[in-house]
């Protein structure tokens, strides 16, 4: 049986490479702009499905809160459409955060592991779980399934590695009137 699984896995892997459907280049391009949070706030089960929906004209370009205004601008540029404000019904743009499990409370139910779209949670049944901060996209999908509410969203602090120089102040004092 194990052999069967290995063979089948290999066959699947092979098929994935061999019969890889040449992705729609437009979908790829849209997907490249999307933040890959995989949060589903847009109403689709991930960034790729949303990209497909945009490409097919099914979805609008302003449904991605993590991508924010800049993401919408890029999509508008790519697709030659007008820029739109982020549609409020899908959520608001928030500072980038990561999920953190309060390890004192966690009961090891694995529900969050099953919910995480990017496999960023490590743990096993009845063992405490931990989120790999580097891989967490901040999608918040692990929050609702947690039966003990032990997951918190913590905004990423600015560090020496992530600190950025600010845009220089407008040099002419009344230039903003123009």
């Amino acid at each position: 049986m194990a052999l069967g699984a290995v063979v089948l896995g290999a066959a699947l892997g092979f098929a994935a490479v061999k019969f890889k459907v040449e992705g729609d280049p437009l979908v790829e391009k849209i997907d490249a702009i999307l933040p890959q949070t995989q949060c589903g706030q847009c109403g689709y089960p991930g960034c790729k499905p949303y990209a497909q929906a945009i490409a097919s004209g099914e979805a609008d370009i302003n449904c991605c809160p993590p991508g924010g205004e800049e993401g919408i601008r890029k999509l508008a540029d790519l697709l030659g459409r007008e820029f739109k404000e982020l549609s409020g019904e899908h959520g608001i743009e928030k500072p980038k955060s990561v999920a953190v499990i309060d390890e004192q409370i966690c009961i090891g139910c694995t529900l969050c592991i099953q919910a995480c779209p990017v496999d960023a949670i490590v743990g096993a049944a009845k063992q405490m779980h931990t989120i790999i901060a580097d891989q967490c996209t901040g999608c918040e999908l692990c929050l609702p399934p947690c039966p003990v509410d032990c997951i918190l969203m913590v905004p990423l602090p600015e560090t020496l590695d992530t600190w950025k120089w600010k845009y220089p102040v407008i040099e002419i004092k009344s230039a903003h009137h123009a």
Partner: peptide, 8 residues
């Protein structure tokens, strides 16, 4: 008219 600093 353009609300720029005139003297400058």
């Amino acid at each position: 008219l353009r609300h720029k600093p005139v003297l400058l």
